[in-house]
């Protein structure tokens, strides 16, 4: 399974998202490859991803993608990430 953490530049909030996704996966006892992408390359990379984690604003710019998209409001709230990731993993 491949998860893409999408942010604007690929090095600030995207890194935070990747860290939170990794912690949440650990909590859920699941494994996945987690990559960071900036919004400029995200659409192309999304073709090989199973799940995309980003913000509401950036999700709107992502365009149509095959992968399921989850949006995060609070980047430091692990509970939000665990809850949304669990729902997405159960649904896929």
């Amino acid at each position: 399974m491949k998860i893409l953490a999408v942010c604007g530049m690929g090095l600030g909030s995207g890194l935070l998202l990747r860290m939170q996704v990794e912690k949440a996966l650990q909590r859920l006892g699941r494994q996945a490859e987690v990559e960071v992408a900036d919004i400029g390359i995200a659409h192309a990379l999304a073709r090989t991803a199973d799940l995309i984690v980003t913000t509401k604003e950036l999700a709107e710019r992502l365009g149509d993608v095959r992968a399921r998209v989850i949006t995060i409001t609070n980047f430091v709230d692990l509970e939000e990430m665990v809850r949304k990731l669990r729902e997405a993993l159960e649904a896929s």
């Binding site: 942010c7 604007g8 530049m9 090095l11 600030g12 909030s13 935070l16 919004i39 913000t55 509401k56 604003e57 950036l58 710019r61 609070n74 980047f75 430091v76 709230d77």
Partner: peptide, 23 residues
């Protein structure tokens, strides 16, 4: 310019913004 281009997604948590640009 990042916020002008991509919007307020840099507000990463209630009350907290992470402002930065590319290397």
């Amino acid at each position: 310019a990042v916020v002008e281009e991509l919007g307020p997604y840099i507000v990463i948590a209630p009350g907290i913004a992470l402002a930065h640009a590319r290397p």
